[in-house]
Amino acid sequence: MSVIEVLSGVLLAAGALALVSGGVGLLRFPDFYTRTHAASVTDPAGAGLILIGLLLRVDAWDTAVRLLIILLFLTLTSPTATHILAHAARRDGVPMWQEGDRRR
């Protein structure tokens, strides 16, 4: 097994870990804003690490270009979506969670 394959495996595992932690956070965090934070981890970190891990395994350059375009698209759109969600929630007056509150 070459160095590149090991590196790619590590990246894939780290991406999967980020996805799982995002999912756990989505279920466990107390209010909308913290849950948005958990969900926003999954796209750039989870999917991004998995895409980079896959980039190390490609055997044709056109596949690599496609993966790079997907990566670029995700890094542009995912933070925007998170921002808009939080913005809309704040405009509608979704309350913030404070220490001692119940989970919403």
Partner: peptide
Amino acid sequence: DLADYRVIRVVSGGL
């Protein structure tokens, strides 16, 4: 009417 959100205007305009 999302036009008052500058971030989404710039990003979607670019994409």
